[in-house]
């Protein structure tokens, strides 16, 4: 495979186009703007559609409209913008519309700053909007995964009729790495439920309103069953040095990159430390983490927030193992040495 050195944010746009994306509705925000800029160039030149909306609220509703017509649609934003899209995410979930949303996380709360955090974890992984819904959340940690996940996201979104969020951060978005591209261009198929403005789809209705209680309950139960199916079929993660690990680090995105370096340093010093890196945050690799809870003495979750993923880890291990929280805020990304020394303290303590 040939590889080119590109930014993660550019890798997303290319992966999406190869994955069959036809429409991008966006609104600029640092550190995600390069995705909109790249899409404005490449979607437009390739005869696809790019439109800059008047707000993130409008962008997500343009997505709702285009997704209703069976198109493969996407947008990209960062925390403050994704927050404005939550209403739309709930409607997309209720109407079971497929879409792809990239969240290049920055620091919060409020306007925060443009440096990396992972504090949109709860907003993205727990649904975010009103109602009992979820999105599928993919967590790339490299330029290659930015392309690969964007490429795959549209097939997943179509198959589950769900929103797929690619949850990344300012560093993975800005970082340049060699990236190879898939050789086949994917295309969405015609959808039996979509509205095409033609005779055979005239009877179709895209809606999230169900006035009677039993009907609304049935929709909710069906959604939960869908999420359970996604958990069985889509849950994905990576493991480094876990076979004999006595101490398990868990991290995603940029933090997992730092953690992988820390693990190799710690192993050089003879400490049996492993790393589990979720590639899907919803569904979450709870079962595997529960298994490892029976093997290791201690787990630590390293993340750029106040312990959001750690809560999911605690739920998974159900008290079967002590879970430490290593947290950073405000755009502070630990060095591998700093993280390794935290592990060393707890390992020996």
């Amino acid at each position: 495979m040939r590889k080119v050195l590109i930014k993660g944010n550019d890798a997303i746009v290319r992966g999406a186009l190869l994955g069959g994306a036809t429409h991008f509705f966006g609104y600029p925000i640092t550190p995600a703007s390069e995705i909109a800029q790249g899409a404005a160039n490449l979607f437009t030149r390739s005869g696809r559609t790019f439109l800059q909306a008047e707000s993130e609220t409008s962008a997500i509703n343009m997505i709702y409209g285009a997704a209703s017509t069976g198109a493969r649609v996407m947008t990209a934003s960062s925390g403050p913008g994704v927050a404005l899209m939550l209403e739309g995410l709930s409607y997309l979930a209720g109407a079971e519309l497929p879409s792809v949303i990239v969240d290049v996380q920055r620091a919060g709360p409020g306007l925060g700053n443009i440096w990396p955090e992972q504090s949109d974890y709860n907003m993205c992984c727990k649904g975010g909007g009103h109602g009992s819904f979820h999105n599928i959340v993919l967590a790339p940690s490299s330029g290659q995964e930015m392309t690969d996940f964007a490429y795959r996201a549209f097939d997943i979104a179509d198959a589950y009729r769900m929103t797929v969020i690619i949850l990344t951060d300012a560093y993975v978005g800005q970082m340049m790495e060699p990236v190879g591209f898939p050789s086949a261009v994917r295309h969405g198929a015609r959808k039996s439920w979509a509205v095409y403005g033609d005779e055979s789809s005239r009877q179709n209705l895209i809606s999230s309103i169900v006035m009677n209680q039993t009907g609304m309950a049935e929709l909710n139960i069906m959604l939960q069953e869908k999420y359970a199916r996604a958990a069985r079929d889509l849950t994905d993660w990576d493991e480094i040095e876990t076979e004999d690990a006595e101490f398990l680090l868990i991290a995603f995105g940029i933090t997992s990159r730092v953690a992988s370096t820390a693990v190799s340093h710690l192993r050089e010093n003879g400490l049996k430390v492993g790393l589990l890196r979720p590639k899907t945050l919803f569904p979450f690799p709870s079962e595997r983490i529960a298994e490892l809870a029976g093997q290791v003495n201690l787990m630590a979750v390293a993340e750029l927030n106040n312990g959001m993923m750690a809560q999911d880890v605690e739920l998974a291990v159900r008290g079967g193992c002590d879970v430490r929280k290593y947290n950073w805020y405000g755009g502070m990304v630990p060095s591998a040495d700093e993280l390794a020394s935290r592990v060393r303290e707890d390992f020996n303590g």
Binding site: Y64, V195, R202
Partner: peptide
């Protein structure tokens, strides 16, 4: 006709 139900106020974006 083909029908799409929209959230409050967003129909022109849809």
């Amino acid at each position: 006709t083909g029908n799409i139900q929209c959230s409050h106020g967003r129909a022109p974006a849809v």
